[in-house]
Amino acid sequence: MADAAGRQGGFGAWLLDPKRRGALLVTPAITILFVMNIFPLLWSFGLSFFNYRANRLNVPSFRGLSNYERVLTDDKVWERFQTTAIIVGSSVLLQLIIGFLLALLFAKEFPLRRIVLMLVLTPMMLSFVSVGVFFKLFYEPTFGIVSYVMNMFTDDAFVTLATPAGAIAGIVIADAWMWSPFVMLLVLAGLVSVPKYLYEAAEIDRASAWRRFWTITFPYIKSLLLLAILFRTIETFKLFDIVYIITEGGPGSSTETIAVFLYRNAFQFFKTSQSSALAYIVLFIVIVLTNLYLYAVNRRAQETG
């Protein structure tokens, strides 16, 4: 390694010194992240201690922790957290189940697989705006296709979004429909990476399908599956566009996720500082959750590895 670096000479040698290589390679990524994400984060962290309102010109005054106090004692905030948890939990679970089943279905080679697979992959290429608008149309009691189909079974007009449970289901179905293919792809990548000779060996040993799955398949897809859960939870936590378009948080506030609540506070009521404080509480919760999750992943990796 030493002579490889020596051959570069001068500044190149200094830069490519093995001691610095890790840091050097990480620098561009960290720089962009710092400028575009971390710096704005710190900025809004500062704002959360003032009484700044983006639509007023007066100089903001320092308020200490009062924004945090106000947010944490607000019952509404806790309701929004519950709503978000329900939507995130059910949507990610649904995505995992559907994604996993689809992956098992498409793990085989068959004629025209490429084309059939595209049918399943398309939903996640649509924009949230269009999915929101069209699912709202599907759920619409008069023109909607969902209501039309449901009316074949019931005489009453079927209004999907009228009840809190129906509205949540409407959102979860739209979101899970969009993103199950994403889970499917990650699981599929794991499934394809399983060496075929392992299955051949299992066939010779006459291992049951269940046992084959847990001893051969699962170890290969485990890490990708966990990655899928992690990314989908993070993404669904931010769920905004679909909710905003389909239900606008209603009926009442039954589908108002924390993201929608934040948006309203920040851009409709211009409680800039208060929403920054809430945002930090959200971030804190997500950090704790992610930490727990990563801890579980690491521990499991050590147990099996």
Partner: peptide
């Protein structure tokens, strides 16, 4: 973590 923040949070800064 930078990926987890709801975008609305950083949008003002």
């Amino acid at each position: 973590t930078t990926r987890m923040m709801p975008p609305i949070v950083v949008i003002i800064p």
